[in-house]
């Protein structure tokens, strides 16, 4: 089994507040890893260290090491652009650009230099099919993306992410703003995507973690309490705190 990310002794500070403490973890290729824990436990912050989205926030300081394909992504000469191309992200609230559906998907390929119209057309069709949105939108590709429903918008954002051909997809509570029907569509999608991509998903919904993931990591107060195969975490956790959380005894 291939290790995608190797995290060693990761500490993260917002100014003087320490949000992540001594995190050690491995994330495996072509698996779905779920990050669970009560809100404010640092799971989203952790997710955002994996493609360096925390760089956008002022006053963030990071210590320790995150290796992606055995290379330190916080190393001095590491190319963030390349990293983000390989490690895509889907956000909590669907955030399509105020452009057409078509333009949203070709945005990534275009900035990375793809100009050929037929290739772009192909990418649009391909990715929309991958997220099972093609049938719903193929007649209105050149209509504004903001006219889609919330669930459709989120699938479009996943398609937009796929269009850059990433190896890893980070998902930050991707269904929390969606209704149950849209949620189940996206969950169904995750299984298919896992065949080709490595997925790390933050969720506050334990059933979701149980349903979709191969590995689960439990975060509490900025620390990783336990990481294991999902069925182990949910049936026989090693740590008492994990058990308490899973069984709903706190949080």
């Amino acid at each position: 089994m291939e290790t995608k990310f190797e995290i060693e002794k990761l500490n993260l500070y917002y100014g003087t507040f320490q949000a992540l403490k001594e995190i050690d973890m491995s994330i495996y290729g072509n698996k779905i890893t779920a990050l669970i824990g009560p809100s404010g436990c640092g799971k989203s912050t952790f997710l955002r260290t994996l493609n360096r989205m925390n760089d956008l926030i002022q006053g963030v300081k990071i210590e320790g090491m995150i290796k992606f394909d055995r290379e330190d992504i916080y190393g001095k000469d590491y190319d963030i652009i390349e990293l983000r191309k390989k490690v895509g992200m889907v956000f909590q609230k669907p955030n399509p650009f105020p452009k057409t559906i078509y333009e949203n998907i070709v945005y990534g390929p275009k900035i990375h230099g793809e100009k050929d119209k037929s290739t772009l057309d192909h990418i649009v069709e391909q990715t929309l099919k991958e997220v099972a949105l093609w049938e719903e939108v193929k007649d209105r590709l050149h209509k504004p993306a903001l006219g889609l429903s919330g669930g459709q918008q989120q699938r479009l954002c996943i398609a937009r992410c796929l269009a850059v051909e990433p190896e890893v997809i980070l998902m930050d509570e991707p269904t929390s703003a969606l209704d149950p029907v849209a949620t189940s569509k996206i969950e169904g999608l995750l299984e298919e995507l896992a065949e080709k991509y490595t997925i790390v998903i933050v969720t506050h919904n334990m059933q979701q973690a149980g349903r979709v993931s191969d590995y689960t990591s439990f975060f509490l107060n900025g620390k990783v309490i336990e990481t294991d195969k999902t069925e182990v975490i949910f049936s026989n956790p090693a740590n008492k705190k994990t058990e308490d959380y899973i069984t709903g005894r706190f949080g």
Binding site: L56, G88, M89, F91, I111
Partner: peptide, 18 residues
Amino acid sequence: VPMSYREGSLSLGATKWQ
């Protein structure tokens, strides 16, 4: 302009200027 647009674009590997 919502912050999420900036995040969306950067997460696709766009540079700040793009």
